[in-house]
Every structure is written in C-alpha cells, then in structure tokens.
Design a protein around this nucleic acid. Structure first.
Lengths: 237, 237
DNA sequence: GTGTTGTAGATTGTCCACAATGCGGAGCAT
DNA sequence: ATGCTCCGCATTGTGGACAATCTACAACAC
C-alpha cells in the first residue's frame, strides 16, 4: 500500500509543502502579478473597498495583503490618503540593479563552492527557454525566461535569504520593464549575455562571472534608462 | 514672526518627516525590539488576543504588524495554530551571515565609488562607541555598537534596498546573539576587527576590505555555533 | 479679485462579533 | 491495553459597522 504513493514522493522535500495558502497570501500574489504585468500603472491609487469587492474578500485580509506588498516595496502607503503603486525613478532603477548585482554576484561564490553541476543543469534549461522565446519573438515570454534564469541562479545558491531578496528585486525589475512595454531590446544579445554567464559558471571562473554579471546589470540599466529618456514616459517622475 | 521658528529649522529636511507612524508600524517596531532582546524565546507562541490586550490595540492592527514580521522572517505562521517566534538553526545562522557578507561586501564597492570620507567619519563614531562599550564591559552596549557599525556601513552606501536588506539581517543577527546571553566574546578582538574594516575602507583598498569582512563574518559564525555547541541550548532545534 | 474658512464627501483606521478550522482529551469498542 | 471516534475548546479567518482624518470645493469676507 505504501508503494502506491512511494512513486511520486521522490525526495523528502515533497512532504512539507502542504500549506494551502492563506487568503492574504493569495491576494498578495494576485496583486503582485498584476502590478508586475503593468495592469496598474505606477502612481495608480488602489482603493480598498474596490479591490476587496474585486477579489471577493473583506477589507481585513486585503489590508494584510497590502501591508505585505508595502513591505516588499511595491506599494507606497500614505496615511489617510491611500495606497499607490510605487513609481520608480532613475535612482530606483539603478538601485534595483545595484542590489541585484550584490545578491547575484554573491550567489556565484556559493554555487562554485557547492553543487555546481546541478546549478549549471538547471540554468541550461532556463537558457533554452530563453532561446525559444527569442526565436518566437515574444517579449513577454522573453522577460519571463530572463526572470526565471536569474531566479534559478539565486535558488541554486541554496541560501533562502538571498533567494527571498532576489525574488523581491526581480519583481521590481519586472515593474521597470513593464513601464516600457514596447521594448524588444535585441533578444539575441540578451541570450548571448546569459550564455556568457552560464559559461563562466560552467568553467568555474568566479572572476569572469563577476565581471560578466556586472556588465549584464549595467547594460540593463542603460537599456531601461536610455529607453525611458527616449520615449519620455510622462507618468514616471 | 518667522524668525522665531527659523532657529530650530536648520534645513529643509526637517520639514518632511511629519509622518507619525501608523499603529501597525508602532506595534511591529515594539515587537521586533522585544524579540531582538530575547524577551520572547524562540518557539514561543504569540496569541493574538493576549498581545492585542497587552498593546491596547485591536486584533486588526496587530495582525498587520504580525504579517510584516512574518514577511521579515522573524515569526513563523502556522494556519489555525498560531504565530511562533522563529528559532534559527545552524543553517540559518550560516545563511544570515552569508547574506550579510553579500550585502556588506557590495557596500564597500559603492562607498569607494561614492563619498568615502563621509562614510569613514560616521564609522569612526561607531567604532568609538564600540571601544567605550568594550572598556565598560557591557555586552548589550557592545552588541548595540556592533549593530550600529554595520548599519552605518550599509547606510553609507546610499542604497535604500541594500539598507533594507541589511536592517532585516541585523535583526536576525541580534536574535542569534540574544539566544546566547552570556556571550562576552573577547571585546578587544571585536573592536580590532572593526578597526581593520575601517582602515581598509579608509585606505580605499577594496580587496583588503573584502577579505577582512569575509573573515569577520566567518569568525562570527564560528563564535555563535561554537558557543551553541558548547552550552547545547535545548530549546534550539 | 484674492484669501480665508466652512462644509461635504470619500477614504482610511479601528473595533467588535460570528464562522470556520484544527487540536486535545475523554470515552468506547475491540 | 490499544486503537478509534467523537466532542468541546482554543485560535484564526472573515465580515460588517463606526469613528477619525484628510482633500477638495464652494461660499463668504475683505
């Protein structure tokens, strides 16, 4: 009888995630995804009653979800004014990528000291997905693949705290990207950059990875800020 | 008439911070400090009704405060079971310091590229406070000074996100330290280590700072884990 | 015409009461 | 004696209502 369920249970990790998410967590996830996708443009006011009705929950749980998103830096709360989608200025964009560089740079050290082969294997899958998205010419899929590459990179480090930080930063990154919808910034070049990162990791060359990811982040900042300056989005301060 | 109040208003920066903190923020701060000080030992269950009565607020604001602390990783929530003070095992201790190394290491790069003199000046104050605490033989003051040194270090980087991460990590660090109350681990050595960090920064030597802070973190882990193994605290899994 | 003031509206902050869920112990059958 | 089942208790999750606060507009005085 036990062997009937022994199949799916490959490792012990499959045992713990029985936590059916609480309502606030569900709402927070949904809202986060919506903000990431750019459904609510930066600066939009999010009324509690309206959102509560939209999600079919009461204001209590919704407030808790909001509280969490404020802590993550996605929303900005003004007392007795309301909650607004945070709009990121140039300094914020630079800061996001500065922090990402710190986190993802440290990741390399941990991966090289740990299970490098497993990390490389998982990242190869991510790069493959990236190539597919690039050849398909789908900007959204491209952004998804990019995000999952970096998420996998940090996850491979095995550090829960770095992972949590990176997740938050990736959401903010996605917010920046959502602001400029029309960006199709040379998919081939992006794929090449990530392949370079992966190669450096595969070779076990920490220095090369460090300079490669620093350049990768700097390129991303230039791309976003350059684009923003060019189109001059009015909603962004 | 204006000059009557012109005295206290030295600069324009004194005008904006009129935001009296919201109740959930106040409660969260209070609770965080209590957990940091070790008032609630790891594993303690925090009942909502009891705490609400203790703080004189209703369950709504208190729940929001809890939510924030859960997001920060200080509390662990089990559905329909309650909220518990998170207890950190060896892996967590290592992870905290790993993440701190990532954040504070990146900080040096930013400081050296920015206003190094200002950073050095502020850190000298922190080290002075440290020396005073060391000579006074007060472990709590020592821990405070240590914490403020690292907080200043990250604050001097000028990166809000790195700062926020570091703040969270420092709280967890303090939690680890609170577990072993009796630690008076060679104050003179601690001061010397921080002086070394400051010297490296003053000299503008990024490499030396990098290796110094890596060693500093490694030492701290050894100190905590060594102590824990020695006294064998039963409450910590 | 300009500045001030009062009021209306909306929104958030807070609290209280009810429902749902999970846990622990007592009792019973085997 | 052991295992199972049922029931009461505690805690969380949720909903709705009241109070406090802020903004914006309009009316009024100068």
């Amino acid at each position: 009888m036990t062997e009937l369920i022994a199949g799916p249970l490959i490792d012990a990790a499959s045992l713990e995630p029985v936590h059916r998410a609480s309502t606030p967590a569900l709402v927070a996830d949904q809202l986060r995804r919506a903000i990431m996708r750019g459904v609510f443009p930066p600066g939009t006011q999010l009324g509690e009653v309206e959102l509560a009705g939209r999600f079919g929950v009461s204001r209590g749980p919704l407030r808790e979800a909001m509280q969490r998103l404020v802590a993550e830096g996605l929303l900005r709360a003004e007392r007795h004014r309301g909650l607004f989608v945070r709009d990121l200025d140039e300094a914020d964009v630079r800061d996001v990528y500065t922090a990402r560089l710190a986190v993802e740079g440290a990741t390399a050290t941990l991966i090289l000291a740990g299970d490098r082969a497993a990390a490389v294997a998982r990242l190869e899958v991510a790069v493959a997905g990236m190539r597919a998205a690039a050849s398909a010419g789908d900007p959204t899929a491209m952004a998804d693949a990019d995000q999952s590459f970096h998420a996998e990179l940090v996850a491979a480090s095995g550090s829960p705290r770095l992972r949590r930080m990176a997740d938050g930063l990736l959401v903010e990154t996605r917010m920046c990207l959502a602001a400029l919808q029309d960006s199709a910034p040379d998919p081939a070049g992006l794929v090449r950059e990530h392949e370079g990162l992966l190669d450096a990791l595969r070779a076990g060359d920490a220095d090369r990875f460090g300079s490669a990811i620093a350049e990768h982040m700097a390129d991303a900042v230039d791309r976003i800020l350059g684009d923003r300056a060019r189109v001059d989005i009015p909603g962004c301060e």
